[in-house]
Design a protein around this nucleic acid. Structure first.
Lengths: 234, 234
DNA sequence: ATATGACTGATTTAGCCCATTTAGTCAAAT
DNA sequence: ATTTGACTAAATGGGCTAAATCAGTCATAT
C-alpha cells in the first residue's frame, strides 16, 4: 500500500499548495499549473486527484476548515482553565485568526473567492447550524442561559464573531485594538453574558465541549473523504 | 430674513433628495441633474449651495448621521424603562436599521459609496472615538464595568454592532433571525455583560445617557454648519 | 500502472474607437 | 440679486478585435 500512501500524500500536498495560493492570490488569479508545480507534480496529475478547479477549491475549503477545527480543539484541550462557552468562543476566534484561508472564508473575502463566491454561499449557514446544535446541548447541560433560544444565540455569536474578524477591514489603523486584547475582553463579556443565573455542571462543561468539538471534526472529515465523492477525479 | 430661510430650505431639500437618490442608486449612478430636479431646482443652483459633488455627498453623510442621532435620542427619551447601556445600544441599532443611508455607511456598502469610498474612510474611527468617550463617562459614573478599558469596549461594541448590521449581507435567508429578536436578545446579553459587579447610580443613568447623546448631536450639527465651512459653495 | 506536458477550445484581458453621459461653468434671463 | 440651462471638457461605457491566458484532454513517456 505504499502507492496508496503516496497518493494521499500527493492529495495533501495539493490541498496545501492550493490553500496557500488561493488565499494569497485568490481563486481567479491562481491557475492549476502553479498549484501543481508548487505541489511538485504536473498539471495532468492534478486531474487524477480532482475532476476540476471548483472541486479542488471546495476540497480546500473543507481541508482548511478541518485544520481550523483541529487547531481549535488543540487549544481547547491545552486550556488548563475550567472550560466555559466564553473560552470556547475565544479559542475559536483565535483559531480563525490564525488561519488566513478560514479568515477569508468567514469574511467572504471578494479577492480570495472571486468568481467562486457566486456559486457557493452556504458556509455561514453551516456555521450557524453547528452552533445552534451546540447551544442546544449547552443549554440542556445548564452551561448556557436558556432565556434566549439556541438558534438566536447561534446567530448572534456568529454575526458578532464575523464583526470581530472583519473589524480588521473596517476600522482605521489608529483605532485598532490588538487581537489578543479583543479576545481577552470578548471572553470577559461573554462569560457574564452567557452564563445561566444558576450555573450547573461547571465540571462537566469541559468534557462536553471537547466531545462536541470532536464530533464536529469527525463530521467534517467525512465531507472530504476521497474516493466515492464527487470531489475526486473521474 | 425670508431669503435666508428659503436658502436653508433649499439646502435641506437638496440634502433630502440627494440622500434618497444616493442610497437608492449609489454615488456613481446618481447625477447632479437628478438631485437638483428632485429638489425642484436647477442644476446650477446646486452649485450655489455646494462647491462640488463630493462636498454634497459629505454633507449628506453628516446630515443623515445627524438624523440617525436624532432618531436615537428620540427613542432614548421615549423609553419608559430605567435606561442602561444595553438599552442605549438597542436603540442605537434600531435607529441604524431604520436609516438606509446610515446602514449603508456603516457596512461601507460598495454599491452606495462606489468611487467615493476610496477618498473618505474615517467614519468608523469617528464612531469608535465617540463611543470611547461615552464609555469613559459611563465607567466613571459606575454604570458600566471598568475591568475592561473604555477604548476596548468601544471597539468591541462597534465591530460587533457592525456584525449585527452586516449580518443581513452574509447570512443565508433561511438562517436569518428577525431584527426585532436580534435587538431583544442582544440587549439581554449586553445587560449582563456590561453591568458592573456593584452597580451604582442606577437612577442617574437616564439623565447621563441622554445628556451625552445630546452632546453628540450638537457636535455633529456644528460639522455641517453652512457658511464658513468648505462644504458650502465658493 | 502512473505521470507528463504539448495541445485545444473557450474564456478573459487589453487596446482601441466612438457615442453618450455628466460634472462643473457662465452668459443670459428673470 | 438670483436662478437658469445651454455649453464644454472630461470621463464613462459599449462594441469590437487581437492577443493572451488557462481549464481540461490525451497521446506519449517512464
Amino acid at each position: 500500500m505504499v502507492t496508496a500512501l503516496q497518493l494521499s500524500n500527493r492529495r495533501e500536498r495539493l490541498l496545501d499548495s492550493a490553500g496557500a495560493l488561493f488565499s494569497r492570490w485568490g481563486f481567479d488569479k491562481t491557475n492549476m499549473d502553479d498549484i501543481a508545480r508548487q505541489a511538485g507534480i504536473s498539471k495532468g496529475a492534478v486531474y487524477l486527484e480532482f475532476p476540476n478547479k471548483d472541486a479542488l477549491f471546495k476540497a480546500v475549503v473543507h481541508w482548511e476548515f478541518a485544520r481550523y477545527i483541529e487547531d481549535w480543539l488543540r487549544r481547547l484541550k491545552a486550556d488548563p482553565e475550567n472550560l466555559s462557552i466564553a473560552r470556547m468562543v475565544q479559542h475559536s476566534l483565535a483559531a480563525v485568526d490564525a488561519n488566513p484561508f478560514v479568515k477569508a472564508l468567514m469574511i467572504r473575502d471578494q479577492r480570495v473567492f472571486g468568481s467562486f463566491l457566486r456559486r457557493d454561499k452556504e458556509f455561514f449557514g453551516l456555521a450557524i447550524s453547528m452552533r445552534a446544535e451546540l447551544f442546544t446541548q449547552l443549554q440542556e447541560a445548564g452551561i448556557v442561559r436558556d432565556d434566549i433560544s439556541a438558534s438566536t444565540l447561534a446567530y448572534l455569536i456568529s454575526v458578532t464573531g464575523y464583526g470581530l474578524i472583519a473589524g480588521d477591514e473596517v476600522v482605521p489603523a489608529e483605532k485598532k485594538v490588538g487581537f489578543e486584547e479583543v479576545i481577552r475582553a470578548w471572553g470577559l463579556l461573554l462569560e457574564r453574558a452567557l452564563t445561566p443565573a444558576q450555573p450547573r455542571n461547571r465540571k462537566a462543561a469541559r468534557a462536553l465541549l471537547i466531545s462536541m468539538a470532536e464530533k464536529m471534526q469527525i463530521a467534517l472529515r467525512n465531507l472530504d473523504k476521497p474516493g466515492t465523492e464527487e470531489n475526486s477525479a473521474r
